[in-house]
Nucleic acid binder design. Structure first.
Length: 475
RNA sequence: GGUGGGUUGGCCGAGAGGCGAGGCAACGGACUGCAAAUCCGUCUACACGGGUUCAAAUCCCGUACCCACCUCCA
């Protein structure tokens, strides 16, 4: 069984053949830390986290680099608007992002480089491009350096566009450009409008990196001139990725073998970045569902499918996930403790994941095993089969970053000691209810159950006695 | 103007010539003191118009509508 990935550059799903057997180098364009993360932002992170986990689970040693763009026009503009230092804004938003990603169990990358920390590498790359005749310093004294689109015949190959059909780049004063489509590699410092802290020395005078160059420089530094997979959101295909590839290849670096792009999450047909209000911001969404449920919602859709975000769909996904979770919990009860995590992946799951990360089918495969497990649970008896079944569910969930027993969720979950306290209190009430039931005083028994429910706990009678759980969404 | 991606049941969402997606909701049954949970069953769709084929959501032609990108974007 080979992993197949949809390469957006080739426009086809191809067998994944790593440059070095057993190893996978991945570069993903992370966020420009300019505002609070919303559902759309974290989708990309989850999608590539699943890729990374599946590769690792399949036996690859994965180098996963996800950058942070910590300086650009927007950060400068927003910080000026808010009257804060640009680096303060970037750092604050970075912390928000980290918090949001931790809440949905996105593993930290192998390394997370930032643009501002790689100015020497960026300058070196630009120098290579100038030396090879693919970049030039603007002749208008602005200190800008541009990539010469006309000098690179393959320009447009990633998105199959002809240079003549493109609209001009608006990233700088066009007077300094040889061609309006040339884009900035280096932006000369604008003394009158930009803070002195937003400039670094360079052979072309003080300035800062253009938008695309940092990814080429950092991918080259950490993954080498050629690496396996480059990922990001669809919107980045052009200009960002097109330009990254042009810059890198023009500098003699083969760059990425495969390009993966995740689709958008929109709200009512609108991009999330344009949506008004902050109901789609991660902290706000996490008031409604738990992080694991949000992750399930994202994973249940294929990464290349456009998702129309709705709270109704989110709630439904959460219910679907709880079905899996409930099974594990009940199986754990029967098995006398935690369900082991060493189960095997079922064949459907593996086939789904190998087929361009077919997470919807993978989720369906998990549900199938859950149904089998529920059947075993209902029949009672075959503990060995149940153990294998439940362990299999856990193992598959783990690949998707959705194992409820994963310690990563513990930080976000309620305090264990508090759970113990509640358990003691509820057990007292349940003993009373048991006595009432014994006496067939159903009114009294139901009153106690209602009382517990009004506190936000659900009581269920099972073959092994009553069990209480927190009603999700009630707190 | 150029480049891509879509349109599937009440809802969410896969699939890519013949075979059950899956979840949620709804309804019926089993179980239960009643519930809950669970199991079983029911509802069974592919934007539209043609065509190819023994067989089409799936392939071909055409039409409509939607979305993204074309230098701020995950």
């Amino acid at each position: 069984m080979t992993l197949r990935l949809h390469d957006t550059a080739a426009r086809e799903t191809r067998d994944f053949a790593p440059l070095v057997p057993g190893r996978a180098g991945i570069y993903v364009c992370g966020l420009t830390v300019q505002s609070e993360p919303h559902v759309g932002h974290v989708r990309s992170a989850v999608n590539f986290d699943v890729l990374r986990r599946w590769l690792a689970a399949s036996g690859y040693e994965v180098d996963f680099i996800r950058n942070v763009t910590d300086i650009d026009d927007k950060i400068l503009a927003k910080s000026a608007e808010q009257g804060v230092h640009w680096y303060a804004l970037a750092a604050a938003m970075k912390r928000e992002l980290d918090k949001a990603l931790a809440a949905i169990n996105v593993l930290p990358p192998t390394y997370e480089p930032g643009a501002t920390g790689h100015v020497p590498e960026i300058v070196e790359l630009i120098e290579q491009l100038v030396a090879r005749g693919h970049a030039y310093a603007a002749e208008d004294g602005s200190g800008d350096v541009y990539f010469d689109v006309r000098s690179w015949a393959a320009y447009g190959e990633l998105t199959r566009q002809k240079v003549e059909d493109m609209e001009p780049a608006g990233d700088a004063d066009p007077r300094g450009k040889r061609d309006p489509r040339d884009f900035a590699l280096w932006k000369g410092h604008k003394k009158e409008s930009e803070p002195a802290t937003a400039a670094w020395p360079s052979p072309w005078g003080p300035g800062r990196p253009g938008w695309h160059i940092e990814c080429s420089a950092m991918a080259g530094k950490y993954l080498g001139p050629a690496f396996d997979i480059h990922g990001g959101g669809v919107d980045l295909r052009f200009p960002h990725h097109e330009n990254e590839q042009a810059q890198s290849r023009a500098a003699g670096r083969p760059f990425a073998s495969y390009w993966l792009h995740n689709a958008w999450i929109t709200t009512a047909g609108e991009k999330m970045s344009k949506s008004l209000g902050n109901s789609m911001l991660i902290p706000s969404v996490l008031e409604r569902v738990r992080g694991i449920e949000l992750r399930y919602y994202i994973v249940a859709a294929h990464y290349r499918s456009h998702v129309e975000f709705s709270f109704e769909a989110l709630d439904e996904a959460a219910k679907g996930f709880r079905r899996i979770e409930d099974f594990l919990e009940r199986a754990g009860g029967v098995l006398g403790g935690a369900v082991p995590a060493d189960g095997i992946w079922c064949a459907d799951f593996v086939a789904a994941m190998d087929d361009d990360l077919g997470t919807p089918a993978a989720v369906a495969a998990i549900h199938d095993v859950v149904r089998e497990g529920n059947k075993l649970l209902a029949e009672g008896g075959d503990e060995r089969a149940l153990r294998g079944n439940a362990a299999s569910v856990r193992a598959m969930l783990d690949v998707l970053g959705l194992d409820p027993a994963d310690e990563a969720w513990a930080a976000a979950a309620s305090d264990d000691r508090l759970t113990d306290v509640v358990d003691v209190l509820v057990r007292g009430l349940l003993a009373e209810r048991a006595a009432a039931r014994e006496a067939k005083d159903w009114a009294r028994a139901d009153a106690i159950r209602d009382q517990i429910k009004s506190a936000g706990l659900e009581v269920e009678d099972t073959s092994t006695g009553p069990r209480w759980t927190i009603i999700q969404g009630s707190v």
